Structure formats: structure tokens, C-alpha cells
Amino acid sequence: MTTSLTASHPALAAIHDYPSADNPSSFLAVSEGNSYFQLPDHPGLIVYRRTGRFLVQLGGPFAPTGSYRELLEAFRSTAREQGLGLVGVQLQRYDAQLYADAGFTVNQVGASWARSLSTFSLAGTKFMQLRNKISRAKRAGLDVVEVHDDAVFPRLREIDRLWLRDKGEQTRELEYLVGRYGDRMQPHRRMFVGFIDGDPVGYISYSPVYGNRPGWMHDLSRRVPSRIPGIMEAINVAAVETFRAEEVAWLHFGFTPFTGLHDDHEMPGHDVGFRRFMELLWAHGEAVYPAQSQLAYKQKWAPDLLLPEYVAFDGPASVAGFAHIFRASNAF
């Protein structure tokens, strides 16, 4: 049985109640446009989108242990009965091991990064350049505010428009594996905005993270094209200071494909050729996804946790199946 988004929003309950895989990106499950696979008398669900002849699954089943395998096998059977390929992305190591045991071809596809906040500090020479950039933004008049009123969102949409235009005519608005703001799940998120002379010049949206490493995920972030350095860094520092005052344990920076690849992370039976393809995209795949620049920003904050993330194919690893992940994300 498949369902679309409903008023009760089963995905929100599932990611909160069944964080079995501790997926820091689980809040993406509630995005509009997702579909959900469920079984009668089996708690939990699977999040997916159909694109072309593939079902693209987000994470593993958000379900208790007792119904995890039943959901996976039923979803797999449904895809096969419909003549559709099945590929899952952003699986955590827990998921990856179960998928490999079930006969999927599982490869590391990247990593997510996180920083524990209990000991976080910008003191020391390691953060000197970061502190200098933040100081320059503040000297330019930057004021960072956590906003709770969606009246500012139309002005943030203008930042989105300028940001996309600056990236080039071919740049598309990503979705599915990237968060959003302003929908009916907005009350669960937090939004920090930087203003100069009363005008918004950048923002960072933070999504909740559940499970064993609870906290917030640095999600969607945009800024107006500007020569003023340190705008995004200053916004994030303001959020971190707020979170630390609230005794939040973790700041997650989310998934970056092609990063953190290591032999020790791979599953038995992984595809060696696909692993080389991931390494090639890390080195030369900026046009597919700017992984190196994304990782450089995250490393500014000295993350102390790397979580390998995986892609799983029902059958051999395939470039076509992998490409449908990016199609589902509106990358092309």
C-alpha cells in the first residue's frame, strides 16, 4: 500500500519514534512530494519517490526492528512486480549491513559530518581565519536573528532567486535530498537570518535530528552574491551559541556525496568499479555536485564525527540507477 502526504503525516511520527538507523537527514522524510510505503499491521514506513523506471528510496525503513525486514521485502517485491528498478540512498551503516545481507549491492556513496557542541569553541589558532571572517561580516553591519515569523520568507525567496542566478543558467533548485522552508513542517525547523541595514543577506535553516545523537542539522543555506566574507559563518556561529545555551548535544552538517570514502566503510560484496566511479566524481565531479567546496565549508567547523552513508541497488550497481537519484533530486 502506498500513500501520499496526509494531514496526520505518518513520516513525522516514524522518524521520531523509530530512529533505528540514527539517520541525521531523517527530517527530509517529511518533505512535500514524497511518497510512503506502508503495510497493514506493520508499524513504520519507507520514504521514496518514483522517477522514470526507478523507485528512489530515502534511507532505510523508518520502522522498529520487528517490521524492518518485512517492509523492505514487500517494497522490493512491489518494485519488481511493477517492473521498476529500486535504488536506496543515504542508508546508514546499520541499514547497509541489512541490505547487503538481503542481497542488495551496497556501496559507500559519501558521508555525513557532525560536531559535538558540549566542547565546541572557536578559540585557538585553528579557528583564527574563521574568526577573522566573522569579524569582517560584523564590521560590515551584519546582525543575525532567529526568526519565527514567516513574513520574512518572501524576502528569503528573493535571496534564493539571486543565489540561483549567480550559480548559472543551468542551476536547478535541488529537492528531496535537500531541505526546504515555509511549508507546513516549518514549525519543526529553526531559521537564522543575517541582516545588513535591515535587509536579509543570508540564512540557514536547521532541521531537527532525532536518535542517539539528537540536535539540529545545518540544512538549506543561501546568501546574496556579495564580496563581504563571513556572512554564512557568522549566521552559523549565532545558531551554535543559541544551541549551546540550550544544551543541544550535536550540530549535524548533513550528507555530502563522494566524501569520506574509505575501504573500511565498504560492505561485503560491494562493487569495486562503482567505488572507483565515486572516487572519480570526488576528484572531477564538480559539475555533478560541488562536493569539495561543500566539504571545505564543513571542515571549517572541525567536525568530530564522520558517518559513512550508502547507496543500495536491487541487483548490480548501475550508473543508470545512480543517475535516477539525481533526477529525483531535480539535479538534472
Rank of each mutant, 00 (worst) to 15 (best):
L156S: 14
A151S: 13
A151Q: 12
A100T: 04
R155Y: 12
S112C: 14
R115P: 08
D199C: 08
N107P: 01
W163D: 06
F127R: 07
V144T: 08
Q129N: 14
T171N: 13
S135R: 15
A137I: 03
R189F: 14
V193W: 03
L177G: 01
Q170E: 12
G198A: 05
V87N: 04
D95P: 02
S121T: 15
L86T: 00
Y176T: 00
G103R: 10
L130N: 05
P200A: 12
V201T: 07
S118P: 00
Q186K: 04
T105M: 08
R136N: 06
F120K: 05
G110P: 01
R161W: 01
N132K: 13
D101F: 04
S118K: 05
A137Q: 04
T171C: 03
I196K: 05
L86G: 00
L117N: 11
V178A: 09
P154Q: 08
R93Q: 12
F120R: 03
E175P: 00
R172N: 10
A123D: 12
Q186T: 11
G182T: 03
Q90R: 14
V193G: 12
R115H: 07
R161L: 09
T78A: 15
I159K: 09
S118N: 13
E173G: 04
E81H: 12
A137P: 02
R115N: 12
I159H: 07
L174K: 05
V106K: 02
D199L: 13
K126V: 12
F192E: 08
F192P: 00
R172V: 14
V89G: 02
L162H: 08
D199W: 01
G194W: 00
Y181K: 01
L91M: 11
S135K: 15
V109F: 02
V109E: 09
F192D: 07
A151W: 07
W163R: 02
E158I: 09
F195N: 09
Y176F: 15
S112A: 15
V106L: 14
T105N: 07
Y99R: 00
L177M: 08
G202C: 06
R184M: 12
Y99I: 01
Y203Q: 10
A100P: 00
I196Y: 03
P187K: 09
I134K: 04
E158M: 10
R190I: 10
M191V: 07
V152K: 03
Y176H: 04
A114W: 03
